[in-house]
Every structure is written in structure tokens, then in C-alpha cells.
Design a protein around this nucleic acid. Structure first.
Lengths: 216, 216
DNA sequence: GTCTATATCCAGATAGAC
DNA sequence: GTCTATCTGGATATAGAC
């Protein structure tokens, strides 16, 4: 509503703030640390963003937009169900791999400040109705088993997002704390997750013409 | 190592600290708030637990023990695989329903303080080797499809834990923010999740004698 | 716009009376 | 063991020079 042009300094500050807030959370973050990270001093932070709270809101909203609505585009597309699921899983795991700490950040800050949620949802137009309708159609047409579409969607989200939220402990328990092994695991996971979902919901009695080519 | 008997006051403090720390996180929590919640004053907190850090460690360890190793008992039991998966999912979702905020608390604090992890894992004997071996055996015997056991375990964990970590946003998007509807959804989810997993990994070519009675 | 210096506040921690 | 009062450090935020 007000941003016409961002100065270079403003960008540097935001970049630094993103890093520190996502790493430490709102209360754990220190304005001093953000200033150091940006190579400037605290006073400038307040010059550009009036308060810690304002700066945080900016960072949080950017992070939210980067990771949440991008999902919706795929779920609201016109693809057939199985193809869409593959498409969704592949894309989402890619996005999260590039921003591995954002899911934990968002979920944590949302659970701390529940008030934020409703305006966020309105603002970004989060609405799964189209996708839910598509699932119902597939159930009626007999191509997938009967299920609660909301359960299915949450299965999908869980399988994609959880490995990032729980990265530290999973990495320690299953991968000797090797970041590289964990990365490899996530790459393999893309194919695993969509296969896992589709195998579970597909009806096998009648042979169906389905769209499970691992395209893209 | 030192706790022989807990005084009544100590219990009250721990109860209050649990509540505030789990709600607000380490940095968000205030000793004053814990004192108020416990109906005593700040000085007493320091009398019983020397510092905020010590108090937190106690609360965190208790929460961790309540939710993490209890899982292991089931996964290391002698049940056949499908029965074990049902057993695990049912039990775990029950435990988390009773402690809905602990997963987010643990995952967040662990991601903030990665150092904590390795000693925790040693201390609680987290080791999935037995369960992994069982999965390999089932693959060889042909009762389930080929897969990476670690992927399967993480599927299981994700499907159980994620709905609790993401409760605020899921409740808002799918359940008009109704706590009661969300509870109902979680109850239904128990049956859904184990069905979902087993349907996906089971081999359907040969008829197998499997153990999918929804016992317990 | 950017800095240094400072005001203000509030948190964790301690001293010491009871 | 439990309290009130206080110390001390560190955080956000501002004033004002350059």
C-alpha cells in the first residue's frame, strides 16, 4: 500500500532481518544482531521500520506469501487429480528445499499469535473449495476410494512439510547428522511421496485410465 | 540424579512453567508470568530452580520424555507390521491429543538449540534399527512393496504429528476456527491414517494373510 | 541517510527480613 | 520456605550531530 520503491539499504535490512527472525523467532531475535548482520547500526533499523514489531510483520508476511499461496495455484489448476498431486508434491518440496526454515518459522509464529491468522487467510485468498470439489468428483466417478477430502489434503501437506519442520531431530536420528545425506533423502522423497499418496487412494478393482506418468 | 522427592511448591512451579514455556517458548516466556500462574513470586522460582535456563531444561526434558520415547516402545514391540502400524498411529494420536502443544514446542526449541539433540537421543535411547529391520523383512517376504524404511517411518510420523503442529492454520482454513470440529476431525483421523498407510504399502497381487483388524 | 550517545524500560537474578 | 525490595544487564527506542 505504501511501498513504491525499495532503497538498497531497505533491502539489505530486510535480508538481514529475514535471516535473524527466521533463525531465532520474534522474541529470540535482537535488533542489534539484525543491524550487525546488515552491516549498519540499530538506529537505521528504526529509521526504515519504526519498530521491531513492524519489521517483523514485513518479514513474516513475505515469508508467508513465498510459501503458502504458491501452493494454491497448483491445487486450483485444471489438471486431473493424480497428475496434480504429483505436480503439487514436486513443486512444494522444491520450494521448501529452497526455503527450509520457513515452515517452522510460520507455524511457530502463527501458534504464538493466533490473531494474525484470519487476516492472513483473507489477504491471500486461501480457499481449498475447488480442490475439495475435484476430489469429490473423483470419488463419485469411482477412480479413487471414498475419503474425506480434508483428510487427504492434510495428508499431502503433512508429508511435504513435516520433514522440514522436524529436520534437526530426523537428521540426527536417521542420518548421523549429515546435512548432505538429508538433502539426498529429500530429493528421493519427492518421487516417494506422490507414489505413496496415489497408491493409497487409487481404486484397483477396475482398471482406470489414470495419469500417473512421472512428468516433470 | 538428584530428585528424591518433589515438594508441593516445586510441583506447582513446574506445572506453571510447563504451561507458560509451552505456550510462549523460551524467549517469549517471562519468569513473572510463571510466578503469577503458580500464585507465588519470582524469588521462589530462583530458590527452587537456580535460573530460567535450569527451569526450562527441566520442563523441556519432561515434555520430550512424555511424547518421544513412548513411541519407541511400540515400534520395538514384537507385533506384525500392519498391526503395529495401527497400534502406533492410534496410540500416538491419542498421546498428542492429550498434549497437543508439545510437538510444536519440542520441534521449535530443538531447531533453536541444535546442541541439545545428540545428548537427548543418547539419553532416551532413540534407535529405529529394530523397526527398520522388520520393514526390510516384510519387503523380502513380499508382503509389502519395496521402499526405503526411513521414508516410511517419516511418513508415519508426519501423518500423526503434523496436524498438531499446524493446528492453528488448519483449523482456520478447514474448520472455521471451531475447536470442536477440529477435535472431531482428529478422532476420525486415527482410523484414516492407518488405513491410508497400509493401503499404500500393501502388495495386492498375491492375497496375503495380514493383520488389519482395527483392534484397539 | 547514517552515525554516536543516551533515555527508558523491563527482564532475570540476588539480598535480606520474616 | 516465602516474601519485598533492589541490583544489574541488556533490550528497544529516540535525540541530535554530521
Amino acid at each position: 500500500m505504501k511501498k513504491v520503491k525499495e532503497s538498497a539499504t531497505e533491502k539489505i535490512i530486510l535480508e538481514a532481518a529475514r535471516k535473524v527472525f527466521i533463525d531465532k523467532g520474534y522474541y529470540g531475535a535482537r535488533m542489534q544482531e539484525i543491524a550487525d548482520e546488515a552491516g549498519i547500526n540499530k538506529a537505521l533499523l528504526h529509521y526504515y521500520f519504526r519498530s521491531k514489531e513492524k519489521l517483523f510483520e514485513t518479514v513474516f508476511l513475505e515469508a508467508f506469501v513465498k510459501v503458502v499461496p504458491s501452493v494454491l495455484v497448483i491445487l486450483n489448476s485444471d489438471e486431473p487429480l493424480f497428475k496434480k498431486i504429483e505436480h503439487f508434491v514436486n513443486n512444494y518440496i522444491d520450494i521448501l528445499t529452497e526455503n527450509p526454515f520457513i515452515p517452522g518459522f510460520i507455524l511457530y509464529e502463527l501458534s504464538q499469535n493466533t490473531k494474525r491468522i484470519s487476516s492472513l487467510i483473507r489477504g491471500t485468498g486461501l480457499n481449498p473449495q475447488f480442490f475439495i470439489a475435484q476430489i469429490y468428483k473423483e470419488i463419485e466417478s469411482g477412480s479413487i476410494k471414498n475419503c474425506d477430502p480434508r483428510q487427504l489434503i492434510i495428508h499431502m501437506l503433512a508429508l511435504c512439510i513435516f520433514p522440514f519442520v522436524a529436520q534437526p531431530i530426523l537428521q540426527a536420528v536417521f542420518f548421523k547428522n549429515s546435512v548432505e545425506e538429508y538433502r539426498q533423502f529429500l530429493r528421493e522423497r519427492k518421487a516417494e511421496v506422490s507414489k505413496f499418496i496415489i497408491a493409497s487412494i487409487r481404486k484397483q478393482q477396475e482398471e482406470e485410465i489414470t495419469f500417473s506418468n512421472p512428468i516433470q
